[in-house]
Design a protein around this nucleic acid. Sequence first.
DNA 1: GTTGCGCCC
DNA 2: GTAGTGGGCGCAACC
Length: 903
Amino acid sequence: MARPTLLLIDGNSLAFRAFYAMINQVDRFVNSEGLHTNALVAFNNFLDGIVEPFNPDSALVAWDAGKTTFRTGKLDSYKGNRDKTPTELTEQFPYLREMVTLHGIYSYELPNYEADDIIGTTAKEGQAAGYDVTIVTGDRDMLQLVDEHVEVWITKKGVSEVEHNDLAMVAEKYDGLTPAQIVDVKGLQGDTSDNYPGVAGIGPKTAIKLIKEYGSIQGLYDHIDELKANKQKEKLVNGKEDALMSRDLARIRTDAPVTFTLEDLKYTGPDYQGLIKFYQKLDFRQQLAKLANQGHVAGQPEPDVDGASGNQPQANAQKPINLKPMLLEDVANLPNFEDEISVYIELDDKDYHLGVPVGFVLGNETDGYVVSRDLDLLLSEPVKQILENSDIAKHVFDAKSIFVVLERYGIALAGVNDDVLLMSYLVDTNDNSNDLGALAQQNDYFDVQTDESVYGKGAKYAIPEDDDVFFNHLGQKARALNMLPAQLLSQLEEREQTDLYKTMELPLSFVLADMEINGIKVDSQQLLAMGTELTNCLHELEQSIYAEAGHEFNIQSPKQLGVVLFEEMGYKPIKKTKTGYSTSVDVLEQMQDVPIVADILEYRKLSKIKATYVDGLLRVIHGTDSKVHTHYIQTLAQTGRLSSTDPNLQNIPARTEEGRSIRKAFVPSEPDWYIVSSDYSQIELRVLAHISGDKNMQAAFNADEDIHADTARRIFHLDDDAEIDPNMRRKAKAVNFGIVYGISDFGLANNIGVSRKEAKEIIDTYFQEYPGIKQWSDNIIEFAREHGYVETLAHRRRYLPDIHAKNFNVRSFAERTAMNTPIQGSAADIIKIAMLHVQQALKDAGMQTRMLLQVHDELIFEVPENELEQVHTMIPKIMDSAMQLDVPLKVSTHEGKSWYEAK
DNA sequence: GTTGCGCCC
DNA sequence: GTAGTGGGCGCAACC
């Protein structure tokens, strides 16, 4: 019969390992009350990843009881050279003990003894009682306890892996010695970390050799006279007392007066309810999510005794969901929803412009939740009336996607009160998961699982055939949509973001929906013609590159190109990446005199245009209307900007003529209409002039001066009316951009090709000339340090935990972000407000003009000829008055028969 | 899935 | 002294 198992864990050793394994992260793991949790996280991973799978019959975690033990009584300096344990770790010890107990493991400490001795004693006792004993520690000295039924596991890589040591392993490591002889080796060798001396001048090699020869320290000194008279003998004779004392200190006790019995150590496994509360206290969201996905759910929460509000876990009453599976024929039995409902629609494609509903849920706690796979039910007149009834408040996740889907079926979603995705993003821009389950978990609601855990991912992704599984998941989503808004709304209120949400972001989502639905027409014939031309050019370039290289290779492979240039052709590598030679533009541009390089640069440029813009765009043109329908992501960019995907219409080439030609393919969708673009001039610098309050920069904008020329005059000390040569203006422009991004002398030097010293002087002069900007940038960084976040003009908030990072780079990055985010984010606020006003004005004026695209500081429209004049006056007026700043906003418009011409 | 590169504002 | 301007998306190659 198999022997029962006993697991003995060295708590202190593992806690130290856990702490130092994640020392870089120490400031990233702090709970809402300021408690550091890095060691707790790593220790918990150890308990989950190693202890739980091991599933011992009995288990114990032993702790050191305090600083003084019987060993310090024998040697004052024992462990005396250790640095004081950081407070970031000591504060975690009480929680470590609690965590161990919650995992169902006996936790024990004994005054005057170290954890080692508790373990040594228990190991001996357990072995005698017939257990297979396993000891886990980071301390190699414990190897002395290895025996026939005792293994010692030493932690590796922090505490995430262990190395198993049995008798054979010890024999291998100690050249055939037994575990019991390790203390004799340590006695001779000493230990610097525990600070006991051993014999001066004897290291591990000699120690092992001597013990192997004489069996023990005692044996060695019994035969000391037989040793050759030399330095070594002298050392040994002089060090005898130290050797015996050190041996005594190294010896782990097996007779500590422990007060438990083996019976007490029965391993009971985790107390999940207790752990949930514990994890909530520690803000262990991942652990909570994991428990939720394993089916462990939170019980009733404790009364809110400390009065803290806002971020408390939800009361996830686990009463069963009142699910009402329905088909079209049951439509007469629809509940009579009166005030508010959750709506969620599952699609068969992540592209909501094409996806078809494969399931949906609507309902509330009172009337129950209607769930169905029946598209005809979703489109039926009674359901349509509910969805279009603006008096029935809807709670949704990603209003824009639902609006777009329903619009395709002729249903105009109305009454959307709350979009949980938007709310969560505004509260914390990091909580922007495009999965409701994940997002709910980020907001401390754990009853709804992620789509990935229910549907699978990649090739295995599938909507469950089992109605119970699928409908229950939908029901949980709908319930989460009912539960989450109250909490999120109060958090928005706390952050003064209610306006931002209700009057900007939520209405904007429907404007964006209109823009996406409209789409923009792309002339595929034009693209195909360009494609053919590009293919020919690329083929020619290819041939000449092969000729110069002497053979064919993949020019698009940075790896192969690196070999050709820097090995075969023998040019000097200028820069390296972590995987090899860098072949980026700035490297190649420094090699202009090499004939092959010009061709390679040209090849790169053209193949980028062909692959990304010609072929890429052709792939996403809808066959039904010859248009592309982008997806604006409203909840991704950390600054509040939009992003655009499938296709990305915010990075269509503009800089080079060849690239810009792509814009010729973007045309109006109606005959005789025009494309009009309308863009803000210097919006970010104007925002900077406003929020910094710098009088000089404000004066330049108020006088409608060329800001880069003004800056050039200032930083190069020129007269007010001096001619500005283009090179000076270029440098000044680079400085202005650099300031917006939080530049350094190094970065600027690189950018404008001056020495670092000159760059530093330029920056110093800049700050002297625009003192308000210097003042503001210092202030905003200070604000971020004090509050942990920065804000835009519209109270959009970005948290910057890294502002306190110990690592210089990480912290510097956060400081630049602290400067850039209010600037970039406020510019985003402004154009969003403008878009709302524009859409409203077009509607109020009964115009046909349609807003199609937003590219951060510009809006693109398609306009019938008879509205052109009106558009050119109306749009700039709306845009430049979107927000009242201390400097004017400037907007210019352009028209043409394509996006290319509208410049 | 990650890396290198390159496109946009 | 550190590294060395912010925010995005997508392609091809490579692992």
